[in-house]
Simulated scan of single mutants.
Amino acid sequence: MEIRDYIKQGFETYYAKYSQVTEEGFCRWMRPDVPAEMKVVDTDEEWSIWKLVPSVVNEDHIGAMEEEYGLTFPEWYKAFISTYHHYFDIIPEQAVDEPLDNVRNMYNPLLCRLGYLPFTWDEEYGKIWCIDLREDAGEGYGAIYEIEHETLFDLDEERTDHAKLKESLIFLYPDFKAYFDHTFLEG
């Protein structure tokens, strides 16, 4: 199965898992100000259930972000940010009107300078999750780590080296696929 198809299946599985509407008419995928093209039912209500919509994010959009970040994104991540527009609550939202704005908000100059791509956060505990993109990382290439946002912001953006950063990173997953499987298919 191609990566994009795998991501698509994972998003659809996760969406279906939590799409039940309660007797009171609520659903996990309900939110205010959903654009018309993302609404399950087009109503004038403030709160609506949103649906997955095929993404308009393309290679040019991703290439521009890679240039901004000074990194080459892995294929798994490219598929992850360019398969569907969504309002999932466990990753940066990607609405149709601003598909990469919340993804761009994950940017951190220190992490990117040292070869780590920040891609999501743990809002409850204030931890940023990132992908190790360094070619010399050996078996850990592409591994997923977390760092406390307070710790990250206390590090000197210009002087912190990889060894100092590594002291603050906590290993989570061996690669992006393992993260994706755990989050979208097993969770």
Rank of each mutant, 00 (worst) to 15 (best):
E23K: 15
E24F: 09
F26D: 15
C27S: 15
M30N: 03
P32R: 14
V34K: 03
V34E: 03
V34Q: 03
M38H: 04
K39E: 12
V40T: 14
D42I: 14
T43C: 05
D44W: 03
E45A: 15
E45L: 11
S48F: 01
I49Q: 15
N58P: 00
N58Y: 01
N58T: 03
D60L: 10
D60R: 12
D60N: 10
H61C: 13
M65S: 13
E66Q: 15
G70I: 09
T72H: 09
T72N: 08
F73Q: 07
E75M: 09
Y77W: 06
A79G: 10
F80G: 05
I81M: 08
S82N: 05
S82T: 06
H85N: 15
F88A: 04
D89L: 12
I90M: 11
V96I: 15
V96Q: 00
D97S: 10
D97G: 06
D97N: 14
D97V: 06
N105S: 13
M106L: 13
M106R: 12
N108E: 10
L110F: 04
C112H: 09
C112D: 05
R113E: 05
Y116I: 02
Y116C: 01
P118M: 01
P118G: 02
P118E: 00
W121Q: 13
Y125T: 15
Y125V: 15
G126C: 06
K127Y: 12
K127L: 11
I128Y: 07
W129L: 14
C130H: 01
C130N: 07
E135M: 07
A137T: 11
E139Q: 13
E139R: 14
G140K: 15
G142D: 01
A143N: 07
I144K: 06
Y145D: 04
